[in-house]
Write a protein that binds this DNA or RNA. Structure first.
Lengths: 215, 215, 215, 215
DNA sequence: TATGAATGAGCATTCATTCAT
DNA sequence: GATGAATGAATGCTCATTCAT
């Protein structure tokens, strides 16, 4: 009788618990292989509650994507906002971004690796959240490079490359457990950043036999 | 009159047709949402043939992964092997790699975005093929940088970043239809390559407020 | 108006209804030819309920075997327990046994004619139930013959013969609808019993030309 | 080239090989679980040959039943025919019958345990063969008992009991590997025969509390 | 609010059977 | 005579979703 006293929680709390469970299960199994029963069990409630709160499995998935997308953008911008100058902001932001990717594996996997392959109503929310993340990264890049003159659209290109590299490096990190997210950030920026600055300073690279491609 | 003439094909041929169809459907829908009937229809045969030749849906998926993995590695090494010097090889290899990622969207999506999230017998084949691709890229990087002294393990790190960036940039390319794979390769190399060389030459980057991280 | 009132029954009740239907269909068609849909229809529910409660077709089959096995053993021992002396117990027990074989055709057919030919997890349960029935019959035989000295192991031999004869005689009964289970029991006991007693009293039979076989 | 020289056998021989394989597989798996592919493999031919010779799976099954039914009847009557007097014939016949049941497990299982549960065209052949066996046993019983006056129809009753007991005792024999078919026959006849003769001589048995049932 | 009971619809898999060669 | 290639038609099983309480 005093066993499951955490019944009758306010809706707000229950929803977050269900989303937590959803992210865990969606991340482990993928959208289609995830079974609503397992999510309900993990959240400690019965299946109809999931439907009461989110309407459908897809509705829950969308809620998961939204929360993780907003969470990463917030983390990211909060970290960047606290830094004094442009370069520090870039460093802090990317570091936070990387920490999120590495630390919230489940959420990141759902948002970045599974959601994109879906259609329907999910696609809209996915695109919104991913665009939001990508835009934040691009803004930080543009801002951090404001000394050099970044050609228009270049920041977006760089943001895509950075985000993709960061995602892929989480696989690398799984095979190198000793590495911290911070150290990986440094190595990645070393590789990209110095190069970018030099490129903007005029030191361009061109395909060995075809200088015509370089701008 | 020439519509149904391709009945009764030898096993070898049918298998490739089925794999072609499988890659297309798996890429569009994802493994779980893909329906074997659709694959069979697309291949112009009936469902039992799929099971006769591949044993199961998973068997077919594994076959798809294997063929695409081997194909990309082959493309890659063939392109690199034809170039005269180390830097040219690097350029040619990465260019071929990028062309594959951009040109064989379906195969790449199956291999890189969907297969990794699966377990069971699939995981073994996925890991093998991805490791094979990653190793080839890392070897090319190490070889291309043989002038500078690359720290051990660094090539693998770079390879992960490059492959992830390449994957992510295919999304960028979809929103910039005018860009060719070659041009994107140049931009990516510009960003990464010049930086890497400079880094190896001693021009390191360190987090603004924390010089302790730099080596 | 009173047609569909029995919806939403407690699990316990539904399970028995499904087992009832299962025994009927398995008996009529055999395990492999039985279709789960038909069982569900007969039980007045939908197919998923069968899987919810029994896990698989095989699980349902095992449940059927278990219930019929336990039921016959219980009938049998209840009838025997109510009789005063050893011979009466034997008579009452065998009569009950025969009544079951003849009266619960479906259950008997499933347990005795179809289940034995199966392997896998079914075999374990079948062996347990059949052994339980056979042991009960053998115990009754041994007990009923306690006046004469029954050689060890003989009761088991007799039990096998009796059970097999009883099973076969249900076929005979189908072609002689006028005969009651009781009458058949008497005839069978007449044939077997008097003989057994005489044999134990020394009146042995030996193959005409080979007295060497008699003990 | 000289590997499979037994190709191109006369139809008669091929048919028997296929029936042999059929009996083996049907016995092991049951009609429905038996797969034509396995039968064809075991017979060393390709599947279409089975259809060429027997028309259908059911056709092959019927052929199996027919051959085994005829074989057992023949064995039986050949053994009985060779004996000099009535009692010897009975002994020899039952002994041969028992030897068949114990020795041709596969054929007996198909004929006696699996075929009966089937309907359709199979039922006709099964009934014919089983009736043929049962009639032969009943005739032997009637003939062997010709000294006593056997009530009409009694022989058929006894035959059913004997055949059922014999079948059931094959299970017993499987758990007692030392016992020969001959010894089991003697024990069974001891139990049944002496009793029958005494019964016919007037020594009837009646239920303890209900003498009204005895005739 | 919360849940045990129930199902429609769909999917992977299998198999007897038939052609084309 | 013999077979590899091919399929129509089931069937076991699962799952998102709903309802009665």
């Amino acid at each position: 009788m005093s066993d499951k006293v955490r019944r009758r929680l306010p809706r707000e709390v229950r929803e977050q618990q269900i989303i937590d469970a959803g992210i865990q299960v969606f991340s482990k199994r993928g959208y289609h292989a995830a079974v609503v029963d397992e999510i309900a069990d993990l959240a400690g409630i019965s299946k109809p509650m999931v439907y009461l709160y989110f309407g459908s499995k897809e509705g829950l998935f969308i809620a998961c994507i939204r929360r993780e997308g907003e969470r990463i953008t917030a983390d990211f911008q909060h970290a960047a906002g606290a830094a004094p100058d442009a370069e520090s902001q870039l460093w802090a932001g990317l570091s936070a971004f990387f920490a999120f990717v590495a630390g919230h594996r489940d959420g990141w996997v759902v948002l970045y690796r599974q959601a994109p392959e879906m259609g329907g109503d999910v696609a809209a929310e996915v695109n919104r959240q991913r665009a939001s993340v990508m835009t934040a990264v691009a803004a930080l890049v543009a801002h951090g490079m404001n000394g050099s003159q970044l050609p228009p659209g270049e920041a977006e290109f760089v943001a895509h490359a950075l985000v993709g590299a960061a995602d892929s490096l989480t696989d690398w990190m799984e095979r190198h457990p000793g590495e911290s997210a911070e150290r990986v950030t440094v190595r990645l920026m070393n590789m990209v950043w110095v190069g970018m600055r030099n490129v903007l300073d005029g030191e361009a690279w061109a395909p060995p036999s075809a200088a015509r491609e370089a701008e």
